[in-house]
Design a protein around this nucleic acid. Structure first.
Lengths: 245, 245
DNA sequence: GATTGTAATTCACAATTTGCAAATTACAAA
DNA sequence: TTTGTAATTTGCAAATTGTGAATTACAATC
């Protein structure tokens, strides 16, 4: 048994040492997809579009595209290229979510897609007025192409669990925001109301904001101070809200 | 500007509608890698092996292998196939870590690797006695092939931050373990000593263990009660230790 | 210029959750 | 029986969180 294990430690490729070229089948369906999330009136929305081509022509799907091996240095570059045409520029927050692969996803055959999550302030999204592109409430998803429903569920799971103890929700806001905005963003992400005084105390203790010195007046109420995120992403050692798993 | 955005929403492929077959370059270097972690005398170790082939022949590297599109249903299947030959079976904990890709990783060209993390009890690892396979202390890594150092760093980052508020560290233990073992596992992962009474109180409150009813005697001290994990993975809404980001 | 309305921001204090250190407890060995 | 040692609890003090009740800062109105 130990011997068997030993043998198998060699990659199978080495068995035909003559062939200078290994001959595995190559992957022709290599794509990247993005779950672009935003808050619209404090409701979580995903950016979807209707596929113009087969497979799943006409079905709603996540924006994405093929990785162009000759022009994309890596999948991040591919995602940025794809995204550049669909979202206004600016340092939008993005992170890799998970890679989905296999025979079952795409009727054309074995495919692999590296999925990402992008968090964008609503105002930074410049959508075409085509009815084939829309922001859909995440609690009201239509049927989607491929395994995109699963991808979105995973993205939401990640956002909600990571959102409780990190600065993630702040990335839905403009660069400068008020504490009320911040609290509303956390509440939207976590799906629960938070106590204002406790929330502010924690935010203050965690020191991940810097005040701009400015305030946001306008209304006939006390003007709110404006803040800015120190770093786009930081984990805390305690949660800002509760909601979890 | 809005118009331009609009146009770009169509995948480029649709421009030559004549071609029924799209003609992107295909990916020939598609692999999976695993960061197999274990605790050896309460020290975190990674499973590494010396590559027998080019590129990086002779260099230490993570176990991994090509995805065989014709026999692997998806990358998970590929990982399991690769792992089956290097680790004793059993329900070892595994999760996808991140996908690494691009021109720069492999001298042979554009490559993509889906990296995973596996947590295994030391006793379940059946290594060949070859000096080309070893468990290396994560704080004493040698130079590694490809971008494997980065992958291991990412794996450790994930383990440490997720370990503080989840059952992850328990996956390094045997199916039945004592609370002292559990605490030691968390301490090893988090890199800090934890207070015993506080730790036990939290573990008890979080209710993610079930007692087996058995105890582990043997020594001339008070026998420790044995426990078992309810689910291999669960997130908490509070941390068991501190250590973070 | 004083008064009012409304959200922003703080405070004060009770309710909980940790951090620490000092007991207990259960066995095997002496 | 007594002793040694790690397992398990207990008992507060200290720190953190949950609530509800004040303050505060403006613009609009009186």
């Amino acid at each position: 048994m130990k011997a068997k294990t030993d043998i198998q430690w060699q990659e199978r490729v080495t068995q035909n040492t003559q062939a200078s070229e290994t001959s595995y089948e190559t992957l022709s369906i290599l794509t990247v997809d993005v779950v672009v999330l935003t808050l619209d009136e404090w409701r979580l929305k995903v950016l979807l579009h209707q596929r113009p081509n087969e497979p799943f022509a006409g079905a709603w799907a996540l924006p994405g595209g093929f990785v162009h091996l000759n022009e994309d240095d890596d999948t991040s570059a591919a995602i940025e290229r794809v995204l550049a045409h669909k979202v206004g520029v600016g340092g939008i927050y993005m992170e890799q979510l998970k890679t989905y692969s296999g025979m079952g996803r795409d009727p054309r055959g074995w495919s692999l897609s590296v999925a990402h999550i992008a968090l964008v302030p609503r105002k930074d999204l410049h959508l075409p007025d085509s009815p084939a592109v829309a922001l859909i409430d995440v609690d009201d998803l239509p049927e989607l192409a491929f395994d995109h429903v699963e991808i979105i569920k995973d993205a939401l799971g990640r956002l909600r669990s990571k959102g409780a103890y990190s600065t993630l929700p702040a990335n839905f806001l403009d660069r400068e925001f008020t504490l009320s905005d911040l609290q509303a963003a956390y509440e939207s992400v976590l799906g629960e109301k938070l106590d204002t005084s406790a929330f502010r105390r924690k935010v203050s203790d965690l020191e991940f904001l810097e005040k701009t010195g400015e305030t946001r007046g306008g209304s006939s109420k006390r003007p709110a101070r404006l803040y800015r995120l120190h770093d786009p992403f930081r984990l805390f050692d305690r949660t800002l809200g509760r909601s979890n798993s």
